[in-house]
Amino acid sequence: MIWSKYNIFFRLRLTDSLLRGILSMGAVISALVMLLIVIFLILESWSLLGRISPARFFTDTSWHPLEGAYHLMPMLAGTLYASTGALLLAIPLGIASALFIVYYASPRLAKWYKRLVELLAGIPSVVFGFWGLTTLVPLINQIHPPGASLLAAILILALMILPTITLTAYSALMAVPDEFLRNATALGLPRWGMIRGVAFPAARTGIVAGIILATGRAIGETMAVLMVAGNVVQYPDGLFDPIRTLASNIALEMAYAMGDHRAVLFVSGLLLMLMVMMLSGMAGWWGRGHRA
């Protein structure tokens, strides 16, 4: 940045420092929001965390918060199963979509398809959930009752994180220098050889960062999963069993939770946030490590 250091309008420098003060105040408040959230989550869960050992969330026999049994594992497992399944589905589809936009489609078609993906990203989660509830769940019910199941959650989540993966992979692929691709073509590589051998290694950092971002979204998604997953607290035996995830558990029980029950819901909120923070830390570390 370049600025004239000495100003001929000396009095105006007062407004300058005033403005700078106002701007700094705004920035400090913005930064404090994060701190405030962490403080309040810890404060609310402390009434429980201070008394019982955290190990009990993993060793208790069941989830009966009113009787003091706080087994979070089945819900953690539900979150992990649903997110993993959604990623397995959305990663190939999302990367294929990005490849289509960058390498396979004509410019006109590519523009339209990118628009469509961006619009898909704008559809709210509650509408995805509603569509899943009225269309997907009855369909799955015909194959194998009850319908509201891990499978429905996976399908809806995959749809929701697909745009994230596509759009980040797209910008990563677009950033690959043109000369790399021209050299690959000059060497006579077929299109797939060029993509696998040149474009993917060059764009790997961005693609992986996008996948990590999408994972965070899948873990935190609440309403859509709540509407289609059946919400039974259990370890699922198969794709057609209902599950309950950590996030939807909070939404389901917060309305009537009191005392320790409320505190344990804040603990699960804290757990969710730690998971997401770890993921974003991982993404940052990965990006720095590979750019250097």
């Binding site: 920035a27 929001v33 965070g216 935190g220 909120g269």
Partner: peptide, 27 residues
């Protein structure tokens, strides 16, 4: 200072919406 503000906003961007709901309810 810039890094600190940017980092805290970056973390904030990843926080699940239900956690915002919990915080909003408590605060």
């Amino acid at each position: 200072f810039g890094m600190l503000v940017r980092y805290s906003l970056q973390v904030l961007a990843g926080v699940p919406s239900i956690v915002f709901g919990l915080f909003g309810n408590a605060f």
